[in-house]
Design a protein around this nucleic acid. Structure first.
Lengths: 356, 356
DNA sequence: CTGAAAGCGCTAACAG
DNA sequence: CTGTTAGCGCTTTCAG
């Protein structure tokens, strides 16, 4: 339920200051004894305004509590100072953390953050198809773990809309992503170092593998690590966990009830790992005695249950993407930088050497 | 990580239809051979438009892919078709689910959803203080578990802004909340029925107890149930868990390492309960053999670990609030209805009779 | 460096 | 029932 997580004992609230009305540019102009055009220039920091005039205007604006009406500014300029973040869903650990990161930056930078969920491919295509419409609601959008095919990317690229992606890496837009092959290797290598040779993987079907495939890359990383010691990833030991707790539970149950169960399980997310831990417990198996478990994310619960995991800095993903967008919207024509976020292995107590 | 939770195998995407431009009301007017005013009326379903004219206009609009420019409409009408949701934080199970519920309704109803986080009381006051400003960004706001003092409520009430609250119940605005006293009683009664008499509670400090106090009410519910059998809630058995997993872990550790530990623990949220379960495990205690644990929420993980809990329908809270707001914005002057959301006990395997 | 004036695209009286 | 005419509040030429 969490309603108070962040409630640090704060300084006494400023006795609820009364709501103060906003005024129009014209009132400010009159008060400062200049024209509205000058007020507009002065307040937006444009050149060609005498220092003295600017000061005068600023004072008047402050006194009148003036702030440009966003609707009017938007109509006149076409920019809305709003960013939309498109996520498949919002009520999951990963996505809510990404949104949190983006929100923090947006608030800080004076942008409004709109949340759009596009749970399936069809809706995602629709989001792109209605980009012309969205352009009138927002200045930019952040696509989070949303696979955009080349054709749609190209369509978006031709628009005035600023775009950033999280997860997918494109050559048109700035992006943030982790090296998922490395994520997989990191987990697998740890397991190999402990002596495991048969590793089970709880992953997920990639929806559109051709463009963008997180599970696939992580699994490739596992294969890579395994390959280096002349080993191999058994396809039969890779099962779908749908990135949910329950999916993880079921996948692990299947894996562990095999005649030849793996000695370790790599779940592609902590939530699936939690499911796996529960499954092991329910089967009377000891972790890490009978089976080791590794996850990805570093969920809050992970440290508490001692889950070994590959940590990602998820909120940072959102923050970096938002910052890139804001920068671009402010005109800083930076290269379409790709930020590769770090990920690191956090060894805790769900992993250990295999039996025998 | 969860990016694909909701990815159901969808029908093949409609081969990315090209982005089609938007046109202005004037183009539609010309195409339909009428004035812009008529177009505006026809398209907004206002009366006083001949059926034939309306059809004509609608066809033209469809052909030109016309949709009113939101910025222009907003400037002219003052309404933004946007709703803001104010949460203390967004990356927690409870709040992200509330937001998800609200988002679904907003999308369905053609409203944009803005997310604002106000982690502490000070920022919350600021949100209210800048209501005049917010009014120009949004038509309404949903305050989620945000304690608004009477004075601020009154200030908000005088504005054009539509308001709905989740958690707090006011007599000015529509609200959604659960009967938290009942939530507490439900949990306690279950424990009492099993034979427990000494119940520990993991709760949280209320920030502004005078206006709105979820933990306090749930605890009161416990006291009530206890009182009915002539028992009493020992103040020393009520400890703060800050509504976080870790806080729950620490609170439970403290509770269980007492010389006279309670035989059952009621955690005011599932996340705190997860922490408590981990603490019990780490102390070598058996659940429910040595100690029973009950939570509140019915988190996804709860069914998997078998946590007995009082289920709340969280996403529904967000949806109901959003719907109330939309209704109000559409002019249906309904009574400031207070929706009391249901909560029910879900008995699983973390509760059982006490030892001896 | 500053002001006047023309929009941005839509809605809302007000006539007719 | 429909068209004309003002705005909504700001930005942006264009003169000066």
């Amino acid at each position: 339920m969490n309603y108070r997580d962040a409630v640090t004992p704060t300084t006494k609230a400023p006795a609820s200051s009364p709501i103060v009305e906003r005024s129009t540019i014209e009132q400010v102009a009159t008060a400062a004894g200049v024209s509205v055009a000058t007020v507009s220039r002065a307040l937006r920091g444009l050149p060609n305004v005498a220092a003295s005039t600017r000061t005068k205007v600023e004072r008047a604006a402050r006194e009148l509590n003036y702030r440009a009406n966003p609707a009017a500014a938007r109509l006149a300029t076409g920019r809305s100072h709003t960013i939309a973040i498109v996520v498949p869903l919002i009520n999951s650990w990963y996505f809510s953390n990404v949104v949190a990161g983006a929100e923090a930056v947006c608030t800080e930078e004076g942008y409004d953050l709109l949340v759009l969920t596009a749970p399936n491919a069809e809706l995602r295509h629709e989001v792109v198809a209605t980009a012309a419409e969205l352009e009138r609601h927002t200045d930019g959008m952040i696509f989070v773990e949303v696979a955009l095919p080349p054709r749609e990317l190209e369509q978006l690229g031709r628009r005035r809309l600023a775009v950033a992606t999280i997860g997918q890496q494109t050559d048109t837009f700035p992006s943030v992503h982790v090296d998922n092959v490395r994520v997989g290797s990191l987990a697998a290598q740890h397991l190999l170092d402990l002596g495991h040779r048969r590793i089970g993987v709880i992953g997920a079907q990639a929806e559109e593998p051709s463009f963008f495939d997180v599970p696939g890359q992580r699994i490739a990383g596992v294969g890579l690590a395994l390959g280096q010691i002349g080993g191999d990833l058994e396809p039969a030991l890779v099962v779908d966990g749908q990135f949910t707790i329950e999916g993880g539970y079921e996948a692990a149950s299947r894996l562990l009830s095999r005649p030849d169960p793996p000695s370790a399980i790599f779940a592609l997310s902590d939530e699936m790992a939690f499911g796996a831990l529960a499954a092991a417990r329910d089967m009377g198996l000891n972790v890490p005695g009978d089976v080791s478990v590794v996850g990805v994310d570093d969920h809050e619960l992970s440290s508490v249950v001692g889950l070994t995991t590959v940590r990602q800095h998820v909120a940072e993903h959102g923050a970096v993407a938002a910052r890139a967008l804001v920068r671009r919207l402010r005109g800083q024509r930076t290269a379409p930088g790709h930020h590769v976020s770090t990920a690191e292995l956090v060894v805790r107590s769900t992993t250990g050497p295999p039996k025998l």
